[in-house]
Design a protein around this nucleic acid. Structure first.
Lengths: 124, 124
DNA sequence: CCGCATCCTGTGCGATACTG
DNA sequence: CAGTATCGCACAGGATGCGG
C-alpha cells in the first residue's frame, strides 16, 4: 500500500461532473416522489416543502433532459402536466437505497463524532 | 399506487442535510485517495488537481469533524501531517462503489438522452 | 394550473499573499 | 511543509410578479 498517488487518477472519473447530478438538493427526492407512479407538478410541491415553482421546474427539466423522467402535458382547461420516471430514472433507486442505508446505519456515529469534535475545549 | 404524497415524507430524512456531505466536490475523492493508507497534505494535492490549500484544509477539517478521518501532526522540521481513514470513513467506500457502478453502467444512456433532448429543433 | 422572468442572497470554491 | 487570511466569482436556489 501507499504507492504515490497518480495525478491523473480522477481525470476521466464519472464524478468529475458530480455523480450525474444526483448530489443536488432535489433530484433524489423527486425520484422518490415518482416511485409509485406519475405525479402532477403541484403534487410534487407538497412533500418538497418550500420548493419554489422556478426551482422545481428547473429540476424537472434537467431530469427530463437526462432521461430520468418524462413530461406529459394534457391540453385541458385547467392545464394538467404529469411527470413519470423512465426505467433509467427508476434504476437510480438502487444506489439511492444503498446510500440511505449507509446514512441510517452510521448517522448516530457521525453525529457523536461531530459532538465530540465540537466539545474539545480549545485551550484545554 | 399513487396515494397522495405525504407532506412530511422527507422531514426526518437523512438527506435533509444532503447525504452527510458526500455530495460535495471533494469528500468522495479524498476517501478514495486515503483508501490504501495514510497520506500527507501535499500528497493529496496531487490527484486533487487544482485544489487550493484553503479548500483542502476545509474539506479535511470537515471530514475530521464528522469522524471520517484522523489528522496526525508530527512535531518535526519540516512539519509533517498525515491523514488516515477511520473505519467510518472506510465504510463509505461501499455506497460509493455502488454509485460509481450505476454511473459506469448508465452514463452512455444518460448522455444519449441528453443529446436527443438538445437536438430537438425548437421550431420544428 | 403550470411555469417563465427578474431580482437577490448564501456559499462552495478558487486566487493570491502571508505565517509557524 | 502545512497551513491561515483576505478577496472575489459563479451558481444553486429562494421571493415575487406576470403570462398561457
Amino acid at each position: 500500500m501507499s504507492q504515490p498517488l497518480d495525478s491523473d487518477m480522477f481525470v476521466g472519473c464519472a464524478s468529475g461532473t458530480p455523480l450525474i447530478r444526483v448530489g443536488d438538493k432535489w433530484t433524489a427526492k423527486i425520484v422518490v416522489c415518482l416511485r409509485d407512479g406519475p405525479r402532477r407538478f403541484s403534487e410534487l410541491q407538497v412533500p418538497l416543502r418550500g420548493i419554489t415553482a422556478k426551482v422545481l421546474t428547473e429540476s424537472l427539466r434537467s431530469m427530463e433532459r437526462d432521461g430520468l423522467l418524462t413530461r406529459t402535458a394534457y391540453a385541458e382547461i385547467p392545464p394538467r402536466v404529469e411527470y413519470a420516471l423512465t426505467p433509467l430514472g427508476r434504476s437510480l433507486l438502487v444506489p439511492m437505497a444503498v446510500g440511505c442505508a449507509w446514512s441510517r446505519e452510521h448517522q448516530p456515529e457521525l453525529l457523536d463524532a461531530r459532538r465530540a469534535y465540537d466539545h474539545q475545549t480549545p485551550t484545554g
